[in-house]
């Protein structure tokens, strides 16, 4: 439930909120859940805002890359919780 609420907030921030708030929120969400729905969100933003841009689908690619990176690094961060 919390995950759904957080994702909705992230969607609103991504579509209408300031970038300086959206990016840190996105990073925190990716670190907490490491889930693929953020790639879908990035794809929607690219589809709506990035149409006709010289660098198409930049956000999808970068979100996927960051997500993979966080997934690889997450166990190394969480070792301190054990």
């Amino acid at each position: 439930m919390i995950r759904i609420i957080l994702f909705c907030v992230l969607t609103v921030l991504g579509l209408a909120g300031p970038v300086w708030l959206f990016v840190p929120a996105l990073l925190v969400y990716m670190f907490l859940y490491t889930s693929v729905e953020v790639v879908l969100l990035a794809a929607f933003i690219d589809a709506y805002y990035g149409y006709g841009s010289s660098l198409p689908y930049l956000y999808t690619l970068s979100t996927g890359g960051v997500l993979l990176l966080i997934h690889i690094l997450r166990p190394h961060f969480l070792v301190y919780n054990r």
Partner: peptide, 29 residues
């Protein structure tokens, strides 16, 4: 692998069906 596949599928959809994707996106945006 799951993440990589989803990214590739999204990119494929964006390249092949940009209008459809944009229409769907506009419903959300």
């Amino acid at each position: 692998v799951q993440i990589a596949v989803v990214v590739l599928l999204c990119l494929l959809a964006l390249f092949s069906m940009p209008k459809v994707f944009r229409t769907v996106a506009s419903v959300v945006v």
